[in-house]
Simulated assay, not measured.
Amino acid sequence: MSEKDFIAHHQASIESGNFQWSAPSNIALVKYWGKKEKQIPANPSISFTLNTCKTITKLAFVKKDNKDSFSFDLLFEGQPKEDFKPKIQKFFERIDTYCSYLKQYHFTIDTENTFPHSSGIASSASGMAALSMNIMSLEKALNPAMSDAYFYQKASFLARLGSGSACRSIKGSVVVWGNHAEIEDSSDLFGVEFPSPIHENFSNYQDTILLVDKGEKQVSSTVGHDLMHNHPFSEQRFAQAHHNISSLKTILETGNLEAFIKITESEALTLHAMMMTSMPYFILMKPNTLEIINRIWKYRNTTQIPVCFTLDAGANVHVLYPENVRETVLQFIKDELLGYCQNGQYICDAIGTGAIKIL
């Protein structure tokens, strides 16, 4: 598939209507850090789709007379949210080539998150994925002959143009984004479901998110990605990501939890090492992030329970572990880790299946 394949060709006419979708967040196991023009990743990534942390978005639309510009109102949890509008405007501008019908309608976008606002969980992935699913529902109404495969593929393509990692929140329990020699049909343009059967060890894998710091990051992810352009270790990092996906592919197929832990934790620390060695350099981890990591290591060494961590571009810690040790690990988290969380806050989540149509 090329970008030209995603240019809309609609036949039907529809005056008004509404749709509603939910889309989850995701957590990368092999990280994407660094991007080219048009939201193209500098290296492939692979992620677990989450289940509980999601955005629910309703899109109402009605035809309008002026078709020269985009027109929309934005509500967050039922209230106008003007400061979110520039991001949606930019998204519409980016996808205009592929969704020429958007200027024909006035939209009311009403969105909410199942996780607390400003909880430190990135909502751009789930938010852009949910909005893209709604837009594709409109496009399918205009072109009823559209196949399901194309519907989801283009939704992922559009979501990527809103927020890179959003393309991994459309389908699947495990999603790969970016060209990789060993992943069938993988693409820089959209995410694809992991093509092989996943070992039962990873069935309903748990992710408990420890909210270490809910404040705004001192350096945005967009700025961090840009700093990879002249990074002294960028080429080695991109090659490492390809190698780690090859390794993780085998791990997910065979259920090797020990190898999974090594790759996952190494990737998390590598992501933050790239931040600390860029110019200008920066640190998003907090002292409590390191305390949690050290306590996880000590607990795993003592008990041999296969619990590990990963990090996103921030201070919060995702604690990953199999479902069959859930009660034991949750007790460990409550006893030893919650004291390092802001206001003792955490979110229990697990591997999910992607976007769901509500209306």
Rank of each mutant, 00 (worst) to 15 (best):
A125N: 14
C167R: 11
A145M: 06
N134H: 10
E193D: 08
A141D: 02
G178L: 14
A130D: 03
D188Q: 00
E139D: 14
E184N: 13
S173P: 02
K154N: 10
S118A: 14
S132L: 05
G178E: 13
F115D: 00
S137E: 15
L138D: 05
S124D: 04
S119L: 00
S123Y: 11
R168H: 12
E193Q: 15
M128S: 07
S186C: 08
S118C: 05
A141I: 04
H180A: 01
C167E: 12
D188S: 10
P195W: 15
P144L: 02
V176W: 04
E182G: 08
E182F: 03
S124N: 05
I135H: 03
A155I: 08
S137H: 02
M146F: 12
H180L: 01
S119T: 03
S123L: 10
S137L: 01
H117K: 08
V176E: 04
M136T: 10
D185Q: 13
I121D: 01
N179T: 14
A159Y: 11
L138C: 05
K154Y: 13
E182N: 14
P116K: 04
M146W: 03
W177C: 07
F190C: 01
D188M: 10
A125M: 12
V174K: 04
A122S: 15
L158A: 07
D148S: 05
A130F: 08
N143E: 09
E182M: 08
K171C: 04
V192D: 02
A130W: 10
K171V: 06
C167V: 11
A122L: 02
E193A: 15
A159N: 03
A145V: 11
R168K: 09
S126W: 08
M133E: 02
G191P: 10
G164M: 07
M136S: 01
G172T: 12
E193L: 08
D185G: 02
P116C: 06
